[in-house]
Computed example of a mutant assay.
Amino acid sequence: MDTGGRGPAAPRTRPLLVVLFDGVQSLDVSGPLEVFAAAGHAHPGGAAYPLTTASLDGAPVRTQGGLRIAPDLVLADAAVEHTLLVPGGEGTRHPDPRLPAGLGEHGPRAERLTAVCTGSLLLARAGPLDGRRATTHRAHCDHLARLRPQVRVDPDPIFVRDGRIATSAGVTAGVDLALALVEEDHGRDAALTIARHLVVLLRRPGNQAQFSARSAAQTACREPPRELQQFITEHPAAALSVDALAARARLSPRHFARAFRAETGMTPGRYVDRVCLEHARRLLEDTSDGVHEVARAAGCGTAEAMRRVFATALGIAPADYRRRFHAPLPAH
């Protein structure tokens, strides 16, 4: 492109407005901001995402952890040129009515609306999520669905992008979402460099499920289900059929299956599938082992069985998962 002898055009800046309120989760604010700030290191002038913070009255806010944050501006006076970021926290449960109203006024002016964790509840109250697919922390998805039935709530992904609106699950998912936005704006190399600088992984796709096997299920209070949860997690390649697990628990298969479900909230087979998925995903991300080897090591048995588990939980084949998300970090 001809730049009239002036050299290449400077990369575009994308001003970022972060909304603050009493009871905000400090990590929902600082996690994404560290990603966006790191993007400025390679940007002329160090301002890839010029930052402004605002609260309803411009007064300092107290985070749910007790940290005091002083905003730059009154929300009504803040300009929104590109990205509006709404963090979550306890303060989203019963917010000042002026807060969603203010977001409703700012939302149409932003090129990109983002919410971290229960910040989705504030965006839902404000209206921009109507008719959109969105997510939040898995523990609050039912609340979001009841609060605004017009929102198409997806409880599984760690973040969701629907047009100009992006929403994420809990704290660390906000970092994943911020890295994805930097990758979109400045390319994968920039996002990988930031991930390396912050000692985080640029490997979690938005459609990766929020759960781990342990967090998806209740932890059993009694033995033998509790001991078997631990055994399954630590020995995914062992014989884990209901009959084999029941024999280990010294119970009949029927009695064991009933007790396991009562204690954990899911069937033994479902729990084993989750463990298989969790181990397989890590092996695909962190090793170069073939799909067949990964399937055996993760306890899925065969590559076909592992493909079924991935398709059900993530909507993607294991080989495609690796091709899309297994990328080495650049060398120093």
Rank of each mutant, 00 (worst) to 15 (best):
Val294Gln: 10
His292Asn: 14
Thr287Ser: 05
Ala303Tyr: 03
Gly299Leu: 04
Ala262Asp: 15
Val275Asn: 02
Leu277Trp: 12
Ala262Tyr: 09
Ala295Gly: 09
His292Trp: 14
Ala303Val: 06
Glu278Tyr: 01
Ala297Val: 01
Gly265Ile: 03
Val275Met: 05
Gly269Pro: 14
Arg270Glu: 04
Asp286Gly: 08
Ser288Asp: 14
Gly301Cys: 01
Cys300Gln: 11
Gly290Arg: 00
Ala298Pro: 03
Val294Ala: 03
His279Thr: 08
Val291Trp: 07
Ala259Tyr: 15
Val275Ala: 06
Arg261Phe: 00
Arg281Val: 11
Asp273His: 12
Thr287Val: 01
Leu284Gly: 00
Glu293Arg: 12
Ala295Met: 05
Glu263Cys: 07
Thr287His: 00
Thr267Glu: 04
Ala305Glu: 12
Ala303Met: 06
Arg274Thr: 02
Phe260Trp: 01
Leu283Ser: 01
Tyr271Gln: 13
Arg270Leu: 07
Glu278Gly: 01
Thr302Leu: 03
Thr267Gly: 03
Thr302Val: 14
Tyr271His: 04
Asp289Ser: 08
Leu284Cys: 10
Val272Ser: 03
Ala262Val: 00
Cys276Pro: 13
Leu284Glu: 07
Met306Val: 09
Arg282Ser: 11
Glu278Asp: 02
Gly290Ala: 12
Ala303Arg: 14
Glu278Ile: 06
Cys300Leu: 03
Asp273Gly: 02
Ser288Asn: 15
Glu285Thr: 14
His292Phe: 13
Ala297Asp: 02
Asp286Ser: 09
Gly290Tyr: 02
Arg296Thr: 09
Ala303His: 10
Arg296Leu: 10
Leu284Phe: 05
Asp273Pro: 13
Leu283Gln: 02
Gly299Pro: 03
Leu277Glu: 02
Phe260Arg: 02
Met266His: 05
Ala280Phe: 01
Ala262Met: 04
Arg282Gly: 15
Ala297Lys: 01
His279Lys: 05
Arg281Tyr: 08
Met306Trp: 00
Arg274Met: 08
Gly290Lys: 10
Cys300Lys: 11
His279Ile: 00
Arg274Phe: 12
Val272Tyr: 03
Glu278Ala: 11
Ala262Asn: 14
Val291Asn: 15
Val272Ile: 13
Thr287Ala: 09
Glu263Trp: 12
Leu277Lys: 07
His292Val: 15
Asp273Tyr: 04
Asp289Cys: 12
Ala280Tyr: 06
Asp286Thr: 14
